[in-house]
Design a protein around this nucleic acid. Sequence first.
DNA 1: CTCATAACGCGACCATAGTTGCACTAGTGA
DNA 2: TCACTAGTGCAACTATGGTCGCGTTATGAG
Lengths: 205, 205
Amino acid sequence: MSSDADGAPARPGGRTARNTAAVLDATLAELGDSGYAGLTVERIAARSGVHKATVYRRWGGVDGLLAASLARSREDGWAPRRTGALRGDLAALGHEVVLGFTGSDLRSVPAAAISAAFQSDRAADALRAFFADRHERSAAVVTEAIERGEAPAGTDPCEVVRAAVAPLYYRLCVSREPVAAADVDRAARLAADAAGTGAFVPPAA
Amino acid sequence: MSSDADGAPARPGGRTARNTAAVLDATLAELGDSGYAGLTVERIAARSGVHKATVYRRWGGVDGLLAASLARSREDGWAPRRTGALRGDLAALGHEVVLGFTGSDLRSVPAAAISAAFQSDRAADALRAFFADRHERSAAVVTEAIERGEAPAGTDPCEVVRAAVAPLYYRLCVSREPVAAADVDRAARLAADAAGTGAFVPPAA
DNA sequence: CTCATAACGCGACCATAGTTGCACTAGTGA
DNA sequence: TCACTAGTGCAACTATGGTCGCGTTATGAG
């Protein structure tokens, strides 16, 4: 076989690289225009100038395109903001999450990926990897807080991050309720306070 | 016009009622077989014995079918389990949520609805209404806990419920991580403890 | 019972997502 | 520079989701 949807192409230079960039850029652009519901391979192919059959062969479909976009976005050097205190760091994280969902100029890639993950195992795997990466990067603000004495040693950093953002995702894509700034701050405060009392130290430790 | 997707049919007796029941039952059955990704009007029509065109006319598509199923499931008299203490009640709630997602015999209607809500405003509205109803019913365990003195008066009951289930939904459909029983219990404990310290009393009160 | 018509069944129809075989272009190693 | 072939473009094709017009059935009111 020549190339594979998940494996890297055996001849990654020149035209192939240009096509990859063009198609993934077009994917993001189409996503911004029509959202994931209106995402079609034909439109992406037309917009990128790459032929439809090529897109199907390399990525398999919209789910593969989204998985690739997610994987690429994992290499954008994202890092959490620092405010000097755990509660503020978590709140900043939360506001970023909400902005990513409601930003009108670019309908969120994460939102599209969450949607796609319900229909495709490939997208689900990509999403899992994406969030594992995000958790790992975000955990830095918690480990730093532990070093500052804001939380006891042994605290599970990822769990604190999850606690801070979960209520926001819950409102955004499960219960479909509006999210106010106060909701973000409350979730951050709750997570930070619980961390301070050692609530995220695993029982076995 | 005769009937509408959202409005009730003007002639709801006899055949129409039979068709409605047959189609919605077939929708749930198909959902159990193939999940939401493989849900198609043609198969539902074939399975129910109702003609494809009729289904499209009455429900508009799979999203309408799902919205109707959700609305119907809202009248099943669901109520939260009682264990005698807030933490146990919330944990029971959480375990039910997880079971609903992983139950293999019937791939969760909520999960399908969450997926559909990303693609259809109608499904999103139905989902919002569904969760508003669930929140309201679940809130009872919190108000009873307040009466027992487990949490201060003024505590927002729905917010406690959200805090208990949000981390589970987050793992199940956002970060796609496995959910262990310990995760459910931790979320319940966290929410109950925070409620006990008055963390869910709105600042203005 | 009778009648107007809401709701339905039916089949033909259109649009488009996704596939396939073939010819060709252009990376890549020698 | 040359040969090999991975990767691409192209166009025709299949499959199927969704629509439409029309004749038929049967509900509910009088």
